[in-house]
Computed example of a mutant assay.
Amino acid sequence: MTADLHEKMDRYEGLLTEALDEAESVPPSGTPLGEAAAEYEEMARSYLEDGRHFREQADPVNALAAFSYGHAWLDAGARIGLFDVPESGHLFTV
Results as ranks from 00 to 15, higher is better:
1 M>C: 07
1 M>I: 04
2 T>A: 14
3 A>V: 10
5 L>G: 11
7 E>Y: 04
8 K>S: 14
9 M>N: 02
9 M>W: 01
10 D>A: 05
10 D>C: 03
11 R>T: 13
12 Y>G: 11
13 E>P: 07
13 E>S: 02
14 G>R: 06
16 L>C: 10
17 T>M: 13
18 E>V: 15
18 E>C: 15
18 E>W: 03
20 L>N: 04
21 D>T: 15
23 A>D: 07
24 E>M: 11
25 S>Y: 02
26 V>Y: 12
26 V>P: 11
27 P>K: 00
27 P>D: 04
28 P>E: 15
28 P>G: 13
29 S>M: 13
30 G>D: 11
30 G>T: 07
31 T>S: 09
32 P>A: 05
33 L>C: 15
33 L>G: 13
36 A>K: 07
36 A>I: 07
36 A>H: 03
37 A>Q: 06
37 A>I: 04
38 A>C: 12
38 A>T: 08
39 E>S: 14
39 E>V: 08
40 Y>Q: 11
40 Y>W: 07
41 E>M: 07
42 E>F: 02
42 E>G: 14
44 A>E: 09
44 A>W: 01
44 A>T: 05
45 R>W: 06
47 Y>I: 08
48 L>R: 02
48 L>W: 01
49 E>R: 02
49 E>H: 04
50 D>E: 08
50 D>N: 05
51 G>V: 01
55 R>E: 15
56 E>A: 15
56 E>M: 14
58 A>I: 01
58 A>E: 08
59 D>L: 01
59 D>F: 00
59 D>Q: 03
59 D>M: 02
60 P>F: 00
61 V>D: 00
63 A>E: 09
65 A>R: 05
66 A>L: 00
66 A>N: 05
67 F>K: 00
68 S>R: 06
68 S>F: 00
68 S>D: 01
71 H>P: 09
71 H>A: 09
71 H>E: 08
72 A>C: 14
72 A>K: 11
72 A>H: 13
73 W>G: 09
74 L>C: 04
74 L>P: 05
74 L>R: 01
76 A>Q: 04
77 G>V: 06
77 G>I: 06
77 G>Q: 03
77 G>R: 06
79 R>V: 11
80 I>R: 12
80 I>K: 11
80 I>M: 10
81 G>H: 10
81 G>D: 10
81 G>F: 02
85 V>L: 06
87 E>H: 09
87 E>T: 13
88 S>R: 05
89 G>N: 07
89 G>L: 03
91 L>C: 08
92 F>G: 13
92 F>W: 07
93 T>V: 08
93 T>R: 04
94 V>T: 14
94 V>F: 02
